[in-house]
Design a protein around this nucleic acid. Structure first.
Lengths: 150, 150
DNA sequence: GACTATAATGAGAATCACTCCCATCCTCAA
DNA sequence: TTGAGGATGGGAGTGATTCTCATTATAGTC
């Protein structure tokens, strides 16, 4: 078994099959979006995406982000400022959390120890059950001031 | 010491002093908003607020929510659907978390054991420090399907 | 390689939650 | 009472996002 195939190949293969499952094509525009999000490694607002891929028309970016979100390749998060932000879904990046700057809206990823993650999940399942919710995923963010906004 | 004063009196007294500190008045409109949010006990979107207080004009509601947020009496949360939602700030209600329904956007409150809360805070402080963030508050949500949206 | 059904594209129009404007009203202190 | 500044609310404005639709690209099929 080859241990050395590129992670990027896996990424694109996974996105392809996610799209296929919904009879969607992995077009050049969609690939460009996935690559931009993979390069950034933290959630991007639309203007940031357009800066990084100036050839992409705004309307196509919005449409394709919606498609990629529907098939589970991209996750949209509503930030505190006026822009939605987009990142690769946890199916592609692994589970993680966000540091959100209350000054500028910047978002960075972080993780917590697996042990804490498990404890958290148990507590959340308990809370969900007693409210009649069926748990899907959790979301743990820390809001603060980034180094630039101190 | 009187243990039996109404919680509502405390609430309004606290809001009054929060507003005073910013030289703002606790007007009838603002009181109506605070009461609507206190009655609901879970975050409300603007249409829900207007349903509950039909006499309030939309523009005043938006303006007053912004004022109440600035002085720390109200907290605005960006939900996944198209509406922002508003709740009393944790200074007034105590620390809590949210169950968010991915179907209808409904939000309910829950709490986790204090012990877990402390563990969480330590882990988050650690993550913040190593990214150069100054922690302000954390936010833990569980996204799932409510009983109606199963 | 041509043919075709269907998906994808992109420029601009439309939507709509939210904010701003401003003439008028209210509150409070002197 | 009076006056000065805060508060009000109806309506106009803003801007991120979505929709429209004529055109173009794609993947099978022959």
């Amino acid at each position: 078994m080859a241990d050395h195939h590129h992670a990027a190949d896996d990424l694109h293969a996974t996105v392809t099959s996610l799209l296929r499952a919904d009879e969607q094509r992995y077009t050049a525009n969609r690939r460009a979006l996935i690559e931009a999000l993979a390069e950034a490694a933290s959630p991007l607002a639309l203007p940031e995406l357009l800066e990084r891929r100036p050839a992409l028309p705004q309307s196509s970016v919005y449409r394709n982000l919606a498609v990629l979100e529907r098939v589970g390749a991209v996750h949209r998060l509503a930030s505190s400022d006026e822009f939605a932000r987009f990142e690769l879904s946890e199916a592609l990046t692994g589970h993680h959390h966000h540091l959100i700057c209350s000054g500028c809206g910047r978002v960075e990823d972080f993780t917590v120890p697996p042990r804490l993650e498990r404890t958290l999940d148990r507590a959340l399942e308990e809370a969900a059950r007693s409210a009649g919710f069926e748990p899907e995923r959790h979301q743990l963010d820390l809001v603060g001031r980034c180094a630039d906004c101190r």
